[in-house]
Design a protein around this nucleic acid. Structure first.
Lengths: 212, 212
DNA sequence: TTCCTTTTGTAACGATCAATAAATAAATCC
DNA sequence: GGATTTATTTATTGATCGTTACAAAAGGAA
């Protein structure tokens, strides 16, 4: 059932990689099908036949991103020996990935569809779910570190996880604004310099009333 | 020369405020003139006569944002008694502004035009310039704190300024993802808990070679 | 009143948007 | 070889994009 009919005349993965770069650079809304098909070196019907409509094409490109350029950023969270190493490794991997060669700056998950109330909320919901999953991943790692004694028994693991991802999201914007690898590394250095004091002070939420 | 001709039949500032909310929510690209004019309660020719084209309308809306919802976030940087107070005040003001009433979540400067290579790079450049100006503002405040002895003589003020703005940019994305005021406040608590250790460790850049 | 200026509503402009119909081309299966 | 199936090319679809002619409407100035 496989080799029936005229064979496809292009490399599907390579075409998807080019589409990914366009989505990554311009965002979902900013990438027109005309530009996408041109970058893929195809005519529109070939794209629609191979990937479906624009939303499906973006989802496939997003999946490819997670397998390629986006991989390796969050992979070390579970395997890192300590929570501190997990955070430092993820942030330093981000600093590298966000300023890597000719690839678009910053993270595709953060930058390619932020306007949730768009004609295609599905796309934005997908990306949001990925971001929230990363928070959960960090939170679980911190809970394990709390069980291991690396973090205090009263540590607010959720708050720490949100803090770290907040910084990582901001790094994507800095990268888009032109920050180079040294600048992003300096940001990570700042964060890690404060880490020990941060986890020493982290407490279960409740005294937010002292907000000025 | 003022009262000549037919008087305008709408409140220009009120109409601009409604346009601002649409741009804030949908972004520059995501906001169509059809939706903008509908939200403003006007027909297209009235909008073009009063504000010019879409780019000019966005710039006017951006200026209004800086005077209203966006005001008060960065105002305290120079006047705060210490650099620590400046950072804490700015971040806490952001946490409030990003989760305020019925207003769109997050910061319009960060969220409304991130795709720099768009058909309208001018808009993105404007916002980028605003963000870089905030970094400079923080850097200068930190330099003053260094002269005052609050920061060490060898502190890397630029790196600290980029770190703080990175966190603030990330907070906009968290707000868009649904983070409430307590969550953002907890992020600020984390940052401030690490602040003293961070400024104690901040050194002039140069040993970034120990990046893993 | 009669100009003169500006705003308003209606309707439409060409361009671009995502998506597709129809016809041709190239492979396998019988 | 003939039939079938899939891919490619060309051209086009209706919808929406930002923007604007045009003429009626509403004020001050003569």
């Amino acid at each position: 059932m496989n080799g029936k009919g005229r064979p496809r005349g292009f490399d599907k993965t390579e075409a998807l990689r080019r589409a990914m770069e366009v989505f990554w650079t311009r965002g979902f809304q900013g990438a027109s099908m005309a530009e996408l098909t041109a970058a893929m070196g195809l005519n529109a019907p070939s794209v629609y036949a191979a990937f479906g409509d624009k939303v499906a094409l973006f989802r496939a490109a997003m999946a490819l991103y997670n397998e390629t350029d986006g991989a390796g950023i969050w992979d070390g969270i579970e395997t890192a020996p300590t929570a501190r190493d997990a955070v430092a490794g993820m942030l330093r991997a981000s600093a590298e990935a966000f300023t890597c060669g000719a690839a678009p700056r910053g993270c595709m998950v953060v930058l390619s569809a932020l306007q949730s109330e768009s004609p295609h909320p599905e796309i934005c919901d997908d990306l949001k779910a990925m971001r929230l999953r990363n928070i959960d991943l960090l939170e679980r790692r911190f809970e394990r570190a709390r069980d291991d004694g690396e973090l205090l028994a009263g540590s607010d693991c959720r708050a720490l996880a949100v803090y770290v991802t907040t910084l990582q999201h901001g790094m994507s914007i800095q990268a888009r604004d032109g920050a180079n690898r040294e600048t992003l590394s300096a940001v990570v250095d700042c964060a890690m310099a404060g880490w020990d004091a941060m986890i020493a002070a982290s407490q279960p939420s409740g005294d937010n009333s002292r907000r000025q």
